[in-house]
Design a protein around this nucleic acid. Structure first.
Lengths: 381, 381
DNA sequence: CTGAAAGCGCTTACAG
DNA sequence: CTGAAAGCGCTTACAG
């Protein structure tokens, strides 16, 4: 604990003498002021400088701190004149209420914790932005806790957040069919899950991958593509199975699904495999993510095939850095993660304020971003 | 302000009757306990459930709260036995100190603010991870404030942070030669800049681009490349000029620098331009970032040139998602942004604790990540 | 209409 | 060795 010793110029003696105190009480300050010192002459060493308190406001306005408090918070009753004057003075001397003190009383810290295991991730970044954006309007600040996949680190962060009296916690991750390595049930603050698997009976936000896949495949169909294949990621991903099911629901029970990994090179390999076969070639390819789509497009070009004239390609994720750099730019599905974050933020807030929220999984619709890899354009939808 | 009304079972009457109070004082609780209620029988509606306070610890241990506090903080004097017993009891009943209350006294919130204008960004993400990692060990949590390039939003976030009594602020951005759109000088908390331009006389951390560029070019030279060109981003970037200067210092005053934009397609275009000329072709290409390098490698391959046999290519950034997916994988310069974040974190912490830190710009060394686009290997360095 | 007092959950100087 | 008291910066029920 830091020393809190203070120095004051004592005007009790002449000339004024500096005295050191182990602790400075307001009574002592008063005594010194009575003895002739102006406030500017007080030298406070241990006390952090800067922040003015409600005491200063009250003193400057010549009223009690209770009245100052009520004036500033638009509570209590007093003449409009008094209220305005207090507010004006507070603004003049740069008064800002101490949120710690407020929080101690109100049991609300206007703070929430955001837990993620996706440090470098593509997915949590927009989610975070959405949360932050939604909550800043309500005066709520967000603690960022990057816990990797380390349960011990997760525990440490959760405890630090609870100690700081967060009003709620949002858990987010890189995969919506995996849990964070930390147990968030039975906390005494509300928890909301976003793009990660939630505890039973919790509120969970996720993208509607089934609908997203449908958008992509229907777009291919609408453009006249009839021989469509699906090149996607590992089957143990829930979203892979869901997107594939949606694709098959449209294209047909036995429509081809090629599962691999989430990489460009898998896109290449898949095209090599398809084009080495004698069977009829596809005229439309629905890719499980944008990286695969990138590999697919490159591989098609290397084979002398034109995208979208010969083959239409659609991706998933709308990862700008990939989607905008393919040749041609990629038509793809956007999971609207920022909106997902916004809703998650507003929901913890609601819970923190005691409003009730139905538990369950909320699927948020995806949006098709039309660029040039399929042909067609937005007007064609 | 939420209602804080409470209900208690009154044992003064028989049978016990529920009474509602607008406010529950500890004296009232005591009175009810005296009247025969056990604690479990108290029904507290308005009071948030859950958190046990130091009062509970003291009561459970049969000591005063002062002694409990001292026992838990390893201050004051008492028998080891008492201290251990208090700690054990505190652990048993799950006591955790309220950081808001502590902060009110100690003037330390164990909280810092991280300001960034790079929401989706590649650069601030590792910086953030480094900060968080360094500070979690010291019990410090990080407020994430994404301010885009909006001065008003920046102001709001800064005020929210100050209201919450952050111990310091770290400013970070997507470009080290641009300021955040918010003035952080003259705050009464310490500010550290990381990967963004700092105020005069501040502490600023940045990567040593000159040294990074030197690593890249010297690597090409060491591998026997003698006709080296530099394909890079827009000249108004300070880092572009710095890397170019470093490259010229090694390769020669008049060595060719091609400035364009930070994209794959510029890499393509630059190669097309070079190969359309009659002059001798380069055998080594130093690219200003990994995306340009990706375009360069693709363009070379499309021309039937082999990387690295015919031409060595080196990038800058070590952006995994790009560098690991080029064919062949890209040798590139890593700016060690996570380490940069760690140091920035430890530095605000030092300042917050009142230790003095020399102001100035600290350049942190980059590291060459050897993959296969240049030939050679780590042993060859 | 306004202020004194109690209290949020802690810590610490001081007095026993 | 231990506890009562004051206080951090606020808010609010209550009494004038």
């Amino acid at each position: 604990m830091r020393t809190r010793s203070c120095k004051l110029l004592s005007f009790a003696s002449h000339p004024p003498r500096e005295k050191t105190f182990s602790r400075l009480t307001s009574a002592m300050v008063k005594a010194f002021l009575m003895s002739g010192a102006t406030e500017e002459q007080l030298i406070l060493t241990g006390k952090k400088t800067g922040r003015t308190t409600i005491h200063e406001v009250a003193r400057a306005a010549g009223i009690s701190i209770s009245t100052a408090s009520k004036a500033l918070n638009d509570t209590g009753r007093m003449t409009d004149d008094t209220r305005e004057r207090v507010k004006r003075i507070a603004a003049e001397i740069g008064y800002r209420p101490n949120a710690l003190a407020r929080g101690l009383l109100s049991k609300r810290s206007f703070t929430i914790g955001l837990l993620t295991n996706d440090t470098y991730g593509r997915f949590t970044l927009p989610v975070m932005a959405g949360i932050s954006e939604a909550l800043v309007d309500h005066g709520v600040s967000v603690f960022l806790c990057a816990i990797e996949d380390d349960p011990a680190l997760g525990q440490i962060h959760v405890e630090a957040m609870l100690d700081k009296q967060v009003d709620g916690i949002i858990a987010t991750g890189k995969r919506l069919d995996r849990r964070l390595p930390v147990d968030l049930s039975n906390l005494h603050v509300p928890v909301v899950y976003a793009f990660t698997e939630g505890a039973p009976n919790s509120v969970t936000f996720r993208s509607d991958d089934e609908q997203g896949a449908r958008l992509a495949v229907e777009w291919l169909r609408k453009l006249g593509r009839r021989r469509i294949v699906h090149i996607t990621g590992p089957e143990d991903f829930f979203s892979v199975r869901e997107r594939a099911a949606s694709y098959r629901a449209i294209v047909g029970r036995d429509a081809e699904v090629m599962s691999g990994v989430w990489s460009e090179s898998w896109g290449h390999d898949a095209i090599a495999a398809i084009w080495s076969r004698v069977a009829e070639k596809p005229d439309g390819i629905f890719c499980g993510n944008d990286q695969i789509a990138r590999g697919v497009i490159d591989a098609l070009r290397e084979r002398g095939l034109k995208v979208p004239q010969d083959v239409s390609v659609v991706g998933f994720d709308n990862w700008e850095i990939v989607a905008a750099q393919t040749r041609p730019p990629l038509t793809t599905v956007d999971m609207e993660l920022k909106e997902l974050g916004r809703q998650a933020g507003l929901t913890v807030l609601a819970l923190a304020e005691g409003r009730t929220v139905e538990p369950g999984i909320r699927k948020l619709p995806c949006r098709l971003i039309v660029r040039q890899s399929c042909g067609g354009d937005t007007l064609g939808i």
